[in-house]
């Protein structure tokens, strides 16, 4: 019998970032710039105009010296599933279908030729994951030479954001197809940041596939997501054993614990 064309199982690509491991070195950021042709400006110390797809933030516990602790929080696009799957905050507001939810992978796309720069999505995103190209990107001297042909360069006047290195998914999928496989093994599709992280703080894979590391890690006791009560359902999870770090990742009331919020959220969902 001829080989039947098959639809591969639905995937939900996601990430688990271990905040206890992250040393804040910034390799993920630079790997991302290099992989995704992220433009830079003459004065990159002008932070208002600096563009990042993933950014590492430094936070501290505000305790006086010498009880101070710091933690670094890498923040890519959260690739939200939305309150109802397929409706992340940005997709719902885009008037041009320039940003869309990819059902087979769960990845939220950003298609620059469609984008006309209204920046609604930027306003809708609670994570500041989206940034606007105010100027034409310029690569001085011979720097165009290092551009990656797998990712198109964005023009001015459009929004850009992290794509979970979708071009790498496409490559892995094509390879699997050519070899007659349905499944893409974990190591064949990794984002540039996860690959570059020198301390393996970033784990990437299919959250629904129990053979993938992220599946287990995302269900761990210490796993959580940013601003969980907004019901944006991000696919980027974090883990930490430090309570103060956990509290910094959402707007908790003074006597509220992360557990309370989770309970309230579930109750709200059930009554919905």
């Amino acid at each position: 019998m001829a080989k039947k064309a098959q639809h591969t199982a639905t995937k939900r690509y996601g990430m688990v970032i271990d905040l206890d491991k992250c040393t804040g070195c910034g390799a993920c950021m630079v790997a991302c710039y290099s992989e995704n042709n992220v433009p830079f400006r003459e004065d990159e110390s002008d932070k208002m105009l600096s563009l990042n797809w993933i950014q590492v933030f430094k936070v501290d516990n505000q305790k006086p010296f010498p009880d101070t602790e710091v933690c670094y929080i890498p923040k890519p696009c959260m690739q939200c599933d939305g309150d109802h799957v397929g409706h992340p905050p940005c997709v719902s507001v885009c008037p041009a279908v320039a940003t869309d939810y990819d059902q087979p992978t769960g990845i939220v796309s950003q298609i620059s030729p469609r984008c006309f720069g209204c920046r609604y999505c930027m306003a809708a995103c609670p994570y500041h994951a989206r940034q606007f190209n105010w100027w034409d990107p310029v690569w001085p001297a011979e720097m165009k030479q290092y551009l990656n042909p797998d990712v198109s360069v964005r023009m001015r006047g459009v929004i850009e954001k992290c794509s979970f290195c979708y071009h790498r998914y496409q490559k892995a999928r094509n390879k699997a197809y050519m070899e007659g496989r349905d499944e893409i093994p974990e190591d064949e599709y990794q984002t540039a940041c996860a690959e570059a992280c020198p301390v393996n703080a970033i784990t990437f894979g299919d959250l629904l596939n129990d053979e993938h590391e992220v599946h287990k890690l995302s269900k761990g006791k210490n796993a959580f997501r940013l601003l969980e009560r907004l019901n944006t359902n991000p696919k980027v999870y974090y883990t930490t054993t430090k309570d103060w770090v956990r509290r910094i990742t959402d707007n908790y009331l003074e006597n509220e614990t992360p557990g309370d919020v989770e309970k309230a959220r579930k109750a709200q969902k059930a009554s919905h």
Binding site: C25, G26, V30, S34, Y146, P198
Partner: peptide, 21 residues
């Protein structure tokens, strides 16, 4: 380095092709 790399190493292409040569 067993596969790890620092931001400086990744950025070195900006020197290879950059204007300060």
């Amino acid at each position: 380095n067993k596969g790890s790399v620092c931001p400086m190493g990744i950025s070195s292409l900006q020197y290879l092709y950059g204007p300060s040569r």
